[in-house]
């Protein structure tokens, strides 16, 4: 286990996602991946991993308005499996 400094985070309205994947390459730190599971509409959806910077690129590239972007008041260290 190791930790990654994480300045920001997002909330994801999983049920609003249509699974287009535009957010995945849009994310500069590459901390979004698509889920293996599907939501109620049958779409895979993005999941967040440690290292988010709160830059809002995912939000700007999401046609379905599922992201809300936050910045931690103090950056946090999140554990990541090696």
């Amino acid at each position: 286990m190791t930790t990654v400094l994480t300045r920001g985070t997002v909330t994801i309205d999983v049920e609003g996602c249509k699974g287009c994947e535009l957010c995945i390459p849009a994310c500069p730190p590459r901390v979004l991946t698509m889920s293996a599971e599907v939501n109620g509409l049958g779409f895979r959806y993005p999941q967040l991993h440690a290292g988010c910077t709160g830059c809002r690129a995912c939000l700007d590239m999401c046609p379905d308005f599922v992201f809300e972007v936050y910045k931690y008041d103090t950056p946090v260290e999140l554990e990541v499996e090696q």
């Binding site: 999941q47 991993h49 308005f65 992201f67 809300e68 972007v69 936050y70 931690y72």
Partner: peptide, 26 residues
């Protein structure tokens, strides 16, 4: 790698954080 990486919960806003961009335009 993705399967193993820990997933950060994104269901609700975290404590001690401020919102920088809203879900929906005003």
């Amino acid at each position: 790698m993705t399967a193993e990486r820990s997933i950060v919960p994104t269901g609700s806003p975290p404590a001690s954080a401020h919102r920088v961009a809203e879900l929906t335009p005003d």
